[in-house]
């Protein structure tokens, strides 16, 4: 199956088995191992990438379904040597231990901040008709699709809070 993707600003052409997920295309066919395979079933968020501006679980979608789309992975978050504000804040607050969920947390948080700016609501938003400030409860609810087994949630949330406040 021929598929063209723009990944972190670079256009790539693939000719792959229809069964190849977007995650496996990134990892096994393009050598972009930053996106992690924690469960392969949409239950952990480690594979989160940003496809056409939306955060998704790349393990639960076929590469072929994304033909023509723009994908951002953790490898595309920094600008050259300059880390993104979130990446920097994760270092500052030690929002990681083993690091395996970290790329997913970062991609997810990057898109989450955009969603919040666009006024999207969450389960814990009191009033659906007015945009909610990004409280701690809002952040943790919106980030709940990303598990961290080391238990770094405090550091991750502190990092997000720091960037959200900027």
């Amino acid at each position: 199956m021929k598929t063209v993707l723009t990944i972190n600003g670079q256009q790539v052409s693939l000719d792959i088995d229809t069964r190849v997920t977007l995650l496996d295309a990134l990892r096994d066919h393009l050598g972009l191992y930053g996106s992690k395979k924690g469960c392969d079933h949409g239950q952990c968020g480690a594979c989160t990438v940003i496809a056409d501006g939306r955060r998704i679980n790349s393990c639960l979608t076929l590469a072929a379904m994304h033909d023509g789309e723009t994908i951002i992975t953790v490898e595309g978050l920094a600008h050259g040597e300059a880390l993104s504000a979130l990446q920097q804040a994760f270092l500052g607050h030690d929002g990681m231990q083993c690091g395996y969920c970290t790329p997913g947390q970062l991609c997810s948080a990057t898109a989450m901040l955009e969603e919040a700016r666009a006024g999207r609501a969450s389960q814990v938003t009191d009033d659906l008709t007015t945009p909610a400030p990004l409280s701690r409860a809002e952040i943790t609810e919106r980030m709940s699709g990303n598990l961290c087994r080391c238990g770094c949630y405090s550091g991750i949330v502190a990092a997000i809070e720091e960037v959200a406040a900027e």
């Binding site: 949409g42 968020g45 989160t48 939306r54 955060r55 998704i56 679980n57 639960l60 979608t61 997810s108 898109a111 989450m112 969603e115 999207r120 609501a121 969450s122 389960q123 938003t125 659906l128 008709t129 919106r142 709940s144 699709g145 990303n146």
Partner: peptide, 28 residues
């Protein structure tokens, strides 16, 4: 879930959607 019409007139639907799965899964 985000559609302004749904949020205002059918908020139970927005609420139910937002209670389901994760943001990543809802995006897909």
């Amino acid at each position: 879930a985000d559609d302004p019409r749904i949020r205002v007139r059918w908020p139970v639907l927005s609420r139910a959607l937002l209670a389901g799965a994760s943001a990543q899964l809802r995006n897909k």
